[in-house]
């Protein structure tokens, strides 16, 4: 059984690599610098770190809602049997396909998993000044995950547990499954 899971992981990793090699790419620096400009703008506009955190998450959500469509269109994925399998897909295919990074899954259970990012293109060239030490710079990713998973009927809560910008070894995101949404079909005729 364990080897079965291993085999799946390898297959997903390959799928992620293959999908990433197919898509058009841009310089990671252009991406990080642009994101830096966005964050700076938010901090200037809101003048409050907590409010900027909220807005970053919201922007991520809007992105995630649409990113999941692209993921499903470009990578041929089978339906996930369990939440921990979803975790593997998010890490090995999702992150790989969009950001080109390898992400590890840790502590995956049926209602929770953690993603460990040792490299993070968003946070490149970034150091947080002291007055912004509470800034969740990569909070965008939490929003993306929330938006993307909601579109596939999973309401989750994401939080940034550790961040390399806070001096931690890795960036760690916790994803907590709150509920599985039931697809409701509404008859337009009535």
């Amino acid at each position: 059984m364990a080897s079965e899971a291993e085999r799946k992981k390898v297959a997903l990793r390959r799928l992620g690599d293959a999908t990433f090699s197919k898509v058009d790419k841009v310089s990671a620096e252009l991406f990080s610098l642009t994101y830096g400009a966005v964050v700076t703008q938010l901090l200037k506009d809101y003048e409050d770190v907590a409010a900027a955190n909220v807005q970053l998450e919201k922007m991520g959500y809007n992105m995630g809602v649409r990113m999941v469509d692209e993921l499903l269109a470009k990578a041929s994925l089978a339906q996930c049997a369990s939440f921990s399998e979803t975790a593997e897909v998010v890490a090995k295919v999702g992150f790989k396909m969009f950001l080109g990074v390898n992400v590890e899954v840790a502590a995956a259970t049926s209602s929770e998993f953690r993603l460990l990012l040792s490299e993070n293109p968003l946070a490149e060239f970034v150091e947080l000044p002291e007055e912004c030490s509470k800034l969740e710079y990569s909070g965008l990713l939490c929003g993306v995950l929330r938006g993307a998973l909601e579109m596939v009927q999973m309401r989750v809560e994401c939080s940034l547990l550790r961040d390399t910008l806070w001096g931690d070894e890795v960036t760690e995101i916790r994803v907590l499954l709150k509920e599985r949404l039931v697809e409701e079909f509404v008859d337009d005729d009535e």
């Binding site: 058009d24 991406f31 969009f98």
Partner: peptide, 13 residues
Amino acid sequence: QRVVSQSAFAFLF
């Protein structure tokens, strides 16, 4: 130099 997918950039932009 590293790369990220163009769509990731497009979404962000």
